[in-house]
Design a protein around this nucleic acid. Structure first.
Lengths: 146, 146
DNA sequence: ATTGATGCTTGAGGCAATCAAGCAACTCGC
DNA sequence: GCGAGTTGCTTGATTGCCTCAAGCATCAAT
């Protein structure tokens, strides 16, 4: 290395890198889910269930039609990973909650994302803090909106 | 800003943030593709075609079965965005190339990823350089393997 | 020339996604 | 109350994605 500082990347380069990492991370997730017998969408839904969530709320979180959620929850429920509970305050609403088995299986999915884990392990603590700060700044622009 | 430094994030927090941004970016991509009448998978395939690529190569790039590529290319070819060309050296092989229209449409998809563009715009040049450097270090661990 | 491997396609079957339509239940005005 | 409009969920139809098993054509190697 000479005195050359790394040249600033073009926006296109950065965009491509972000895209590549995004899909790589998604495939790591999908593979981990598959090892637990889940599709990636089923795992994604399960990952949202920190508490009871109405069907409509899941559709919003997953950015898809409500009728789509019906099918996904049907399959998860048939496997005992999720339960539909009536909402006490509104009889139209069905709240979805993860069963113990559902919580356990999504925990395993997260733990088994080896590629992502080992990638993050190559960064030291300071670098992780920096990365976290930068990504947090990107979040608001990316999160809502489409 | 006081003297408090931001505390180092836990690995779980970082993982969650990376996952959230990965899916947000993917949905931005999918939405941009949809505006051009493409599914996200079709757009993803089209994005790989910088030159002629054999069907098998596409299956590897997309990490899926070869028979799946047949269908995706069928639909793209039916819309004139892609062409199958015989390989001069091996008559089993069909090379897929983007047509002019195909190149144009994927260019538009990239340009229309508004959420991603504006998110990246919130970083100044130095921050982008830092981010690029960190993400590049993550790439090797995430890229191959699954 | 046979054997085996490779590249692509086809067909069957399941999941995911959307749209349109429908039913039940809530809300508001009266 | 009662009816109008709205909201939450499900169903059915259709399309695309995806995998697996099977098949055909071609290549490589003996």
């Amino acid at each position: 290395m000479t005195g050359t500082v790394s040249p600033p990347p073009t926006k296109a380069q950065l965009l491509e890198l972000v895209a590549a990492l995004g899909t790589a991370q998604w495939q790591d997730f999908a593979a981990a889910a598959a090892r637990q017998g889940l599709t990636s969408v089923q795992a994604k839904l399960l990952a949202q269930l920190k508490g009871p969530v109405p069907m409509r709320g899941l559709a919003t979180l997953l950015v898809c039609d409500a009728s789509n959620v019906t099918g996904i929850v049907d399959r998860l429920e048939a496997r005992g990973l999720v339960r539909r509970e009536p909402d006490p305050g509104d009889r139209r609403v069905k709240n979805v909650v993860a069963t113990d088995e559902g919580r356990e299986i999504i925990r395993r999915v997260r733990a088994e994302m080896q590629a992502t884990h080992s990638a993050l392990d190559t960064l030291d603590e300071e670098e992780r803090t920096t990365l976290y700060g930068l990504l947090e700044r990107l979040r608001p622009g990316l999160d809502h909106r489409g």
